[in-house]
Design a binder for these strands. Sequence first.
DNA 1: TATTTAGTTGCAAACGATTTGCAATTGCAT
DNA 2: ATGCAATTGCAAATCGTTTGCAACTAAATA
Lengths: 148, 148
Amino acid sequence: MNETLPIRPDYEGELRKAGVRITRPRKVILSILADAGDHPDALEIFKRAVEIDSGISLSTVYRTMKLLEGVGAIHRHAFEGGPSRFEPAGVEHHDHLIDLDTGDVIEFHSQRIEELQQEIARELGYDIVHHRLELYGRKRRAKASRGG
Amino acid sequence: MNETLPIRPDYEGELRKAGVRITRPRKVILSILADAGDHPDALEIFKRAVEIDSGISLSTVYRTMKLLEGVGAIHRHAFEGGPSRFEPAGVEHHDHLIDLDTGDVIEFHSQRIEELQQEIARELGYDIVHHRLELYGRKRRAKASRGG
DNA sequence: TATTTAGTTGCAAACGATTTGCAATTGCAT
DNA sequence: ATGCAATTGCAAATCGTTTGCAACTAAATA
């Protein structure tokens, strides 16, 4: 009876397990994260949160993100230039392709690349703790040029 | 009659060609960059510069770095957390392995990975403008454990 | 070489993202 | 219901970096 739908991460559970209080602002932020399909930054999360509970502060958003990151519930990405952007950690590992025009983030994964990285690190005498692979690009125009 | 030694980038030439004045502070900064074997950040460059000419300001370092970056003479790397670090652009493309304990940066290159990236982007309908591949790791301890 | 003037400088203040001190508030175990 | 440590909002602080501005200077010109 496994769900086929994307898993809604059980943040509250993760936090409780980590001995952290589930407060009102945290509930709001958590719910936003749970169904964010994109990779919002702190300010964006804050804006969405304020629409639900106008009393929430940006510091609390930052604090909660750090908390979740610490617990391993979310991943923080510092893409080129901009502020940190977050995503649920639940999904299995992947890298990112950032659309330079829209800021959209597309996820991808290449087992082959992962292996090559391991190989390279090994040759250099290192163990990889983590890595960062980001492709920055633009949508390819349709062959001829008449596309829009 | 090609040199076998690492090429000393001719920053002054590049700048002059770009119609930029070669001032005293710039000369100092440029000389520092020219023989920096590492990947210093702005503050580090500033410190080295002050030892040569105490009148140089940090803003000038930042301005010069931006200038050089604009001309394509150096590359800026925003490694995890820390400030931007710079390196001469002369060398052919490579990626970086960052030693988490020392901050040391080791360069590597994998043609195979580059190809795979292209392939992935293409499949996703994108052209890569540039990319970022960073491995963060620690020196592997010698097998048994008696190493230091 | 003296003149000229737009490009550069150092400084201090401004900046954006993020963190922090603190007093007031609130989960939640009792 | 009670009590206290965890958490909050706020404002001020932090860090890396950029910028406005008046003084300075590289380098083209006479």
